[in-house]
């Protein structure tokens, strides 16, 4: 347990040093400049656009962190052989994998929390600047707490993508892992389309294959409630719970598989 904690903290420290958190500055600049520009251009709908932009940016910046750092977690250590030094210490290999994963989850959590605060600050400023009659036309209030639901599910999704990256990086090179992880991200978002595929294709075999893929591939669309939240549609707690539960189970599976592979591989 101690080893896991130290490894996780080290991942966090390294990613902070690696200027990963600089993306937060970009994020803030993007939001503030966008809100300024939109304020000049549109009337009324600018809060919706800021929300769209803020949530999309949270998700995309997070994706880059999850993929690039997630890959670096293990495959870069193996490629650069820095793993040799650590594994000769009293650390079990599965502890190493778990520590690495938790370290990146910590990095993501800090990153997303800061982004959420920045988003609320910009939205709060806009609400303050907007007259009440214009606010009445909004789908949802500017400082809608439901935004946190979307942010939370983005976090769960990013944790899942990190687990995918970790899984691939335990047995393939970092470039290949990055490609595979991005592929999985894209496939995961198209996954929902696979469900009714059998209604569209004539071949029953293709339909069954598509349905099987639907259940095996991570269904990332189930974490995407951005549009509902922005339009003030309710996101039921049951849905939040099921999506989170699904995410946790899938993450556990990937991390376990990563531990399994990593514990058995040779470091040539």
């Amino acid at each position: 347990m101690r080893a896991i904690r130290h490894i996780a903290v080290n991942v966090f420290r390294e990613s902070v040093r690696d200027k990963v958190l600089y993306n937060l500055v970009f994020f803030a600049v993007l939001l503030i400049s966008a809100s300024y520009l939109l304020g000049q251009l549109t009337a009324g709908q600018d809060v919706k656009i800021i929300k769209d932009l803020g949530l999309a940016a949270t998700s995309i910046f997070g994706l880059f962190i999850a993929v690039f750092i997630g890959i670096g977690l293990v495959s870069k250590e193996v490629e650069r052989r820095s793993v040799y030094g650590v594994l000769a210490k009293p650390v079990r290999r599965h502890e190493f994998v778990l520590g690495k994963y938790l370290g990146l989850v910590l990095t993501l959590a800090v990153n997303i929390a800061v982004m959420a605060v920045a988003l609320y600050l910009v939205l709060g400023y806009m609400a303050w600047m907007t007259p009440a009659n214009v606010q009445a036309a909004w789908d949802a209030p500017a400082l809608d707490p439901a935004l946190l639901k979307a942010v939370f599910l983005i976090f769960v999704e990013l944790c899942l993508i990190t687990a995918v990256a970790l899984f691939f990086s335990t047995f393939s090179s970092s470039i290949l892992s990055a490609v595979l992880t991005f592929g999985m991200f894209v496939a995961g978002h198209f996954d929902a389309d696979l469900k009714n595929f059998d209604q569209v294709v004539a071949s029953p075999a293709a339909g069954a294959l598509a349905r099987g893929m639907y259940y095996v591939l991570p269904n990332l669309a189930s974490f995407d409630v951005k549009a509902d939240v922005v339009h003030g549609q309710p996101v039921p707690w049951a849905l939040m719970g099921l999506a989170t539960g699904y995410g946790l189970v899938y993450i556990a599976m990937l991390v376990l598989a990563a531990m399994f592979i990593f514990s058995r591989r040779d470091f040539k």
Binding site: E14, S82, G85
Partner: peptide
């Protein structure tokens, strides 16, 4: 056992940012 041994890998490489 690992508590009681030390190891220097060939051409050691550690973490860039530490």
């Amino acid at each position: 056992v690992r508590r009681r041994l030390g190891y220097l890998p060939e051409n050691p490489y550690f973490y860039d940012y530490l």
